[in-house]
Design a protein around this nucleic acid. Structure first.
Lengths: 209, 209
DNA sequence: TATATACGGAACTGGCGAGTTTCGGATACG
DNA sequence: CGTATCCGAAACTCGCCAGTTCCGTATATA
């Protein structure tokens, strides 16, 4: 009916700035949480005007959803392949990966109050943060089964969630850092024993307490 | 110097209402989270006036801290003692316990945005929600070691956090219910295998996927 | 019975933040 | 070159909520 306006005249929107704004949103989100974040903070950090943000996203909620959805998948693209399950799992422990995971979890924490209120946001989080992590672990476990290193009876679904769950718990609940000793204690104290791999003796010992 | 007023005249404060108000606060907290909760909601649910609440607690923050700190410890007081680790762990799976744990986790989720802002609140949460759970598991594992059922080399600290961590992850992140099959998959698919207990065959099978 | 305080309820204050508008200036199109 | 739209910046509206105050009533002390 009413002609849909197709803006062809005038200055064009500079979409090259979108990523900077979304990154700024992610930073503020990680530091302040959803409720603590204000659109003005995001605009200030991106050196943009509030109006510029509202010209591109209809609301704070849509801005946040887009920011989460556009989050870099980063690492986890090409998984290590060392020939042993332990080698692969330990190979995942890299400063880059840890740092990335910790920031994602901070964002998760700040968003948790919104999970039940905004299903779209919950879905964006699921796809950007949660799924990739579990999939990576499941892939490594599947390889180990194919190699005959571990039994195919293993509960892959549950096992692949151990590291994400315990990492999230440590960051969000216990408020402790995710460091190498912690990750090794999961691998050597839980994951490998659970799939029936007993270490004769590891050169890299896990601290007892 | 200035005489500390000791109110002896007039109507006395009815402290028998404190628990109702704190319970109301916990309910609203579980439903709305810290930022979503208003003092007026709490007052309304407790059928009290806002002024009554502010006469007893100096601020919203102190009200919430007190509510969390006074949370019923419930269950977990007397742990099951069946003679086997699996029996003890499965014995912890009771509708009451599950329901209680799920509500506590909802409250945790709503409070997560405050963890970094209010250390006192963080401490109250730690003592009321987190510690009891891990302690219960550790006790059961220690008993199993004393019985000689499992090795004393086990990483008790890490093992006792598996169930709390995976339960929290399931509720807060995956938004799935904590039911009996899920808890059994942790016990039989992770915990028992990790401590070296292989089930010959269980009458109560854990679903594969 | 008089007084001081608690009660539930409701009105009020003050600050903060989402979203809108306005401004002077920049930029793409015709 | 004129115009429509963009830009960053800042002022503005509007609603919400923490916290306060006031009201009429209830209750404990003296």
């Amino acid at each position: 009916m009413t002609q849909v306006e197709s803006p062809k005249l005038g200055r064009k929107r500079d979409h090259s700035r979108d990523p900077e704004i979304l990154d700024a949103a992610l930073e503020v989100l990680a530091e302040c949480g959803y409720d603590g974040m204000t659109v003005e903070m995001v605009a200030a950090r991106a050196k943009a005007g509030k109006a510029t943000l509202y010209r591109r996203w209809a609301s704070k909620n849509e801005l946040v959803i887009d920011a989460v959805a556009c989050m870099k998948r980063a690492d986890l693209e090409h998984l290590p392949d060392t020939g042993t399950l332990r080698g692969d799992l330990v190979g995942l422990i890299k400063p880059r990966t840890i740092e990335e995971a910790e920031k994602k979890l901070q964002i998760m924490a700040g968003l948790s109050s919104m999970l039940s209120k905004s299903p779209e946001l919950a879905q964006a989080i699921e796809q950007a943060i949660i799924r990739p992590r579990a999939e990576a672990n499941k892939t490594l476990l599947l390889r180990a089964i194919e190699r005959g290193e571990i039994s195919s009876d293993c509960d892959l679904e549950t096992l692949s969630l151990i590291t994400p769950a315990m990492t999230a718990y440590r960051v969000l609940v216990l408020q402790k850092p995710v460091d190498r000793p912690f990750l090794l204690s999961i691998i050597d104290g839980v994951l490998l024993p659970a799939v029936g791999i007993r270490m004769a003796d590891s050169f890299e010992r896990t601290p007892a307490g």
